[in-house]
Design a protein around this nucleic acid. Structure first.
Length: 723
RNA sequence: AGGCACGUAGCUCAGUGGAAGAGCACUACCUUGACACGGUAGGGGUCGGCGGUUCAAUCCCGCCCGUGCCUACCA
């Protein structure tokens, strides 16, 4: 069958042979040596071309050659377009019937075109003694014959690209034939303009360059195929020898539209499969009828596809849409990356590196597979792809498992929870006076998560959206809120229980809706089990996707919580470093630089004690005396920002080691401080940097100075015993 | 040959003109009533190389090296 250019692949640089042989000049004045990768085509040669300015061949131009095998005669011609004098021997054999370049040369010089291959790839009668041979057998036979004739002049290895059929990988043979083509330039123009005018946008935008490049150099599209099935070409030929005209019609015509004769025969060929595909955006909606569907859904908002069919399908749909519907078929084309195997190689049955999604689903679940792919789906820059690895699916399955367990915690702690009552209570946002810090914090954070996911999806950053939900659920809801809630529930204040339950359910329910597009099955299952106010939809699928609700934003609570978290992390750091067993309760002293921080830390010392496993938490202002309570050189110290976190170790402190650790921390602070202060004393920086950058750096410097003073105090205490 | 991209932690990849982030992997400790498919705390990067612009460059510009993809009829 004939193919379109797009269906011919040249991807493999194949090792070939550049074979040289001599054509003796008919007048016996010498010979001209030509080089070729396809010696068999010499059976159809109708010229030898040389460059007009090449002194080596100047005398041969116009001389006659008799084909030593077929007896055909032809001439040496001069052609500056075809011939590169620097390549090979500087003389090119010209086979107009079997090479696109030679075809054009043939047209320029009015050369005869001799087809030497038939449709089956066998040599025709024009091939003289080799008629009937397969094209590759003919190659060997021709070479053997040339050798016998003493005309072989050598050969060298030659890397070149050989065109193969995209589907069956057969070597494509250029031949002369009559085919139907679509003239593309008039169709390409409106599509180019549509993209230039922003009527259709590519995401990521960089693909428009690739699009323009192809569209501006578009070639006519060969649409006829000699295949056994497909849409038949709607052309009928008149059998009347006086007419012989073509009739083109939508339905089978009874008579020739030119002579009225009834002897019609439809073209045997079928259309390229993409010739129906390019009608897809409107043909599927009832076109050419003006259906309601067509009016409603054309043009559509977004096309989401892999970049490998940008030309085959996307560009052609745009051209067809603009031609038949006078409107672009879609506003946005989102091109995602291609999934390859772990090594980045395209999956193919031949290579045996394909992965069957059903196998992955059977092993890890559909949600895990989907989430893993979403996690990896970044915007498609050229030549990049998703290296698919089972490890990612396993990670996603672990995430799913984590969600199940978090839900289980929630469900076993929801006794007595009244969803309707809670919905009423937060109808206008959380009551700051009534809710405790962890509740205000998580209700604020869940809004931030919704905001982040929503923005990411709006901008087609799929991986960022997936990662934002993941981060919220795992690192905020599970790592912090559930731990805080657990402790609060254990405190057992029955009057406060509903707040914790409500915040937990709200955070989890919102997270499920955020996650639903990425893990549809799990989220539906969990959502069904969560208590909801009466009148809630029947399925998570028909709930509204979360959008941020500013009434829940609580910057003060987020800041307070951040401080509390920092202190807890510092405490845990000390525990880990000093190998303090988790069952051991520790006493803790926090030294702060201002009353604001003192108020916060005093207010939430219960939380700090619970999460840091402390028997006692005391908060002091700098400068106040605390020596009475602690042995100064037996304190392990860590900094939480500029808050000194101290844990008395009652005789267990290795003063030397503690000092070394503090000195190390100090060195880092000093280097940071020096860098900043140097920067801030640079007049050019102060002069030219924007005010907010200056403010930020000055604040940072002040913070560093305070922290450094705190650390110096800690080092000083260790020296108290004179060590 | 022309075009488009990419080179950031051991691996896979985000990211921004104001002294770098995630997941996995790695190290230490921990079976605490959601979860060991787990928890806590860590280690790890002169952001490919060389220049330039800038108060300031991983980010902007130029060149070089390396890699990928697309287009193209190279005898």
């Amino acid at each position: 069958t004939a193919l379109s250019d797009l269906e011919v692949e040249f991807d493999e640089q194949t090792q070939g042979e550049l074979y040289e042989f001599a054509y003796p000049l008919a007048d016996g004045s010498g010979e001209v040596v030509v080089a070729t990768t396809r010696p068999e085509t010499m059976l159809g040669d109708t010229a030898v071309a040389v460059h007009p300015d090449d002194p080596r061949h100047a005398s041969k131009i116009g001389k006659e050659i008799k084909n030593p095998i077929t007896g055909q005669t032809f001439k040496v011609i001069a052609d500056a377009i075809l011939v590169d004098p620097k390549f090979g021997t500087g003389a090119v054999k010209v086979t107009p019937a079997h090479d696109p370049n030679d075809f054009e040369t043939g047209q320029r010089h009015n050369l005869p075109m001799i087809s030497i291959f038939d449709e089956a790839g066998k040599v025709t009668a024009a091939g003289g003694p080799f008629a009937g041979l397969d094209r590759f057998a003919a190659r060997k036979a021709v070479k053997a014959r040339l050798k016998e004739l003493g005309l072989e002049r050598g050969s060298k290895p030659h890397m070149h690209a050989v065109g193969h059929c995209q589907r069956c990988e057969t070597v494509v043979e250029p031949t002369l034939s009559t085919q139907w083509f679509v003239k593309m330039e008039p169709l390409a123009k409106p599509a180019i303009e549509a993209v230039e005018q922003g009527k259709t946008k590519f995401v990521p935008e960089t693909w428009s360059k690739t699009f323009f490049h192809w569209m501006n150099n578009i070639r006519d599209w060969c649409i006829s195929r000699q295949l056994w099935w497909g849409h038949r070409i709607p052309v009928w030929y008149c059998g009347n020898p006086q007419c012989q005209q073509m009739t083109v019609a939508r339905t089978t015509p009874a008579t020739c539209s030119h002579c009225g004769g009834a002897d019609l025969k439809q073209d045997e060929d079928v259309l390229d499969t993409w010739f129906s595909s390019w009608l897809w955006p409107f043909a599927t909606l009832g076109w050419p009828n003006e259906t309601r569907e067509l009016k409603t859904f054309y043009p559509t908002t977004m096309l989401d596809t892999g970049y490998d069919i940008l030309f085959f399908w996307v560009a052609r749909m745009m051209m067809a849409g603009l031609h038949f519907m006078k409107k672009v078929p879609f506003r946005t084309v989102y091109l995602h990356t291609m999934v390859t195997d772990e090594k980045g190689e395209k999956m193919s049955k031949v290579k045996g590196n394909t992965i069957d999604p059903l196998d992955v689903i059977a092993k890890h679940g559909a949600d895990a597979l989907r989430f893993a792919l979403a996690w990896l789906t970044t915007q498609a820059s050229q030549g990049k792809n998703i290296k698919f690895s089972m490890g990612n699916v396993e990670d996603a399955r672990r995430f799913a498992n984590k969600i199940w367990n978090a839900t289980r915690f929630a469900l076993i702690n929801l006794e007595g929870f009244d969803a309707d009552r809670f919905a009423d209570q937060i109808a206008d946002g959380p009551d700051r006076a009534e809710f405790d810090l962890p509740e205000r914090w998580i209700l604020s954070r869940v809004q931030r998560a919704a905001e982040e996911v929503d923005t990411a999806l709006e901008e087609y950053r799929i991986a960022d959206a997936a990662q934002a939900v993941y981060h919220f659920i795992w690192n905020e809801l599970c790592d912090w809120y559930i731990e805080l809630g657990k402790a609060a529930l254990a405190r057992g204040d029955a009057a406060d229980k509903w707040k914790i339950q409500g915040a937990l359910v709200t955070a989890l329910e919102t997270a499920m809706r955020l996650l639903h597009p990425f893990m549809p099955f799990l989220t539906e299952e969990i959502w069904q089990q969560l208590p909801k106010p009466s009148g809630a939809p029947q399925s998570i699928m028909i709930t509204l996707y979360p959008v941020r609700d500013v009434r829940f934003h609580d910057d003060a609570s987020e800041a307070s919580m951040a401080l509390v978290q920092k202190v807890i992390v510092a405490l845990r750091g000390i525990r880990a470093e000093k190998n303090i067993p988790s069952i051991t309760r520790i006493r803790t002293l926090l030294v702060v630089t201002d009353d604001y921080k003192k108020t916060i830390l005093d207010g939430y010392k219960t939380i700090i004690a619970e999460q840091g496993r402390c028997s006692d938490v005391r908060v002091r202002r700098t400068g106040s005396s605390f020596g009475g309570d602690f042995i100064l050189d037996q304190l392990a110290t860590a900094l939480a920002g500029d808050v000194e976190v101290m844990v008395p170790l009652d005789g267990l402190v290795d003063t030397g080691a503690e000092k070394a650790k503090l000195e190390k921390d100090r060195a880092k602070l000093v280097s940071d401080r020096d860098y900043l202060s140097k920067k801030l004393t640079n007049p050019k920086f102060v002069e030219r940097a924007p005010a907010e950058v200056l403010d930020k750096d000055r604040a940072k410097l002040a913070e560093l100075e305070t922290a450094l003073a705190r650390l110096d105090a800690a080092v000083g205490r260790l020296r108290a015993d004179g060590s």
